[in-house]
Design a protein around this nucleic acid. Sequence first.
DNA 1: GAACACAACTGGTCATACCACTTGACCACC
DNA 2: GGTGGTCAAGTGGTATGACCAGTTGTGTTC
Lengths: 239, 239
Amino acid sequence: MTFAKIERRSLPDEVYDRVLGQIVSGSLTRGQALPSERALAEALGVSRPAVREALQRLTHAGLVTVRQGGATTVSDIRRTGGLDVLPHLLLPGGDLDLAVARSILEARLAIGPVVAGLAAERHGRAAALLDAVTAIETDTDPVGRQRKALAFWELVVDAADSVAFRLMFNGLRAAYEPALRALSTVMAGEVDRVEHYRALAEAITTGDADTARRLAHDLLSHATRALLHALDLLEGARR
Amino acid sequence: MTFAKIERRSLPDEVYDRVLGQIVSGSLTRGQALPSERALAEALGVSRPAVREALQRLTHAGLVTVRQGGATTVSDIRRTGGLDVLPHLLLPGGDLDLAVARSILEARLAIGPVVAGLAAERHGRAAALLDAVTAIETDTDPVGRQRKALAFWELVVDAADSVAFRLMFNGLRAAYEPALRALSTVMAGEVDRVEHYRALAEAITTGDADTARRLAHDLLSHATRALLHALDLLEGARR
DNA sequence: GAACACAACTGGTCATACCACTTGACCACC
DNA sequence: GGTGGTCAAGTGGTATGACCAGTTGTGTTC
């Protein structure tokens, strides 16, 4: 019997999720006006500062446009949103959006090999990488393995010494983490190939950038292909 | 004589920038405690709600950790920050951080060809892309040209039909835009090659993914090389 | 039709009060 | 010595009300 940390939810966070959910689900569309802060506060049964905090957060996430004296309007997520919206697009209403999942896996596939190559050029630390591989191997739970794989990639992206890739990784990880369980079938063929991770760690620590790129690509393309295959099956079932 | 739009700066935004500046400059380091909301409000001569809004924003940007009843502490930007921190890292105190600039250009170089390839597979719209190329050609101002090139790439990333890449593009653009002038020397060799953009638009609209990838890589690697060259010169001057 | 004034409404900021939680100190009990 | 309980002081979280700043629509005047 274990106890998990209790997740605290502040009122502005609840308001943020409510409004964001309406935007993502399409109930609130681009250009549409939100109720005033006062009206929203009354409707949601919270104070106006709570609504303000949520709206400011939505503003900085690029999801709404606020004008003093005027109505707050919904922005075009794709034009102005940032990576932190991605988790909400991936699991709208709790179900996996396959197109979003595909785009995440495509992005990983584009970035992973380059990051691995840079890490090899800039020399990752052998001990930490091998420890991370062992951690993947040791964890037999599908979700746990994915977490361990993420920890491995965190070390790789740190070794790449690129702040842009590092911050991107943070955003992609944040998107992916809520979907670990939903994606575990698709990801199994990747995270179960421990020897591949080990070889990648080896290539990085010996500075073999070409091999690192190739191995990373091999490793990451499996899940992308599995998802595309699942998408094809879905398309087929639809006809 | 033209007039530019007056940029409104809210008080919470000013507080956010103040605190973020301290974090980015290293005056406030990882794990360090910030003053309480009340103390900070008094020190900055603003109300507590303004400070709250700024701190909540810093929290959601992954830059500080707030605990009810306890002190707000500075987080590790690289571990928890998102892409929206990137502009602040690129131009800390107004001067270009070359390592950050390099990482942005490396990221572009990794992503651009893949996005171009996807756009070709998924067929970008010819007219819009060619209009965008004409806009690049027509604008002779170095900064303006870069803006037009960004508009071109926006069309490309839209044609790629990948929300993950699209949102990433938004973040990278936001990082890059404040540094257009500072980077214009490095970028000139790229944005001045209009015929290259035209060929890329052609490859995308005819669905030639391999050519699109190659052209995108050629196009984007120039600035990366120019910057690396500048970095080498700086290294040499330091010895 | 253009310019102006005004009212109503919106967002922006502040002050104050109170609640919820954390931390440290101290005490009691086993 | 270790555990649990209580209390005070300080922190963040929330609400209310007031007022300021900006926007929009309407009516009036020229």
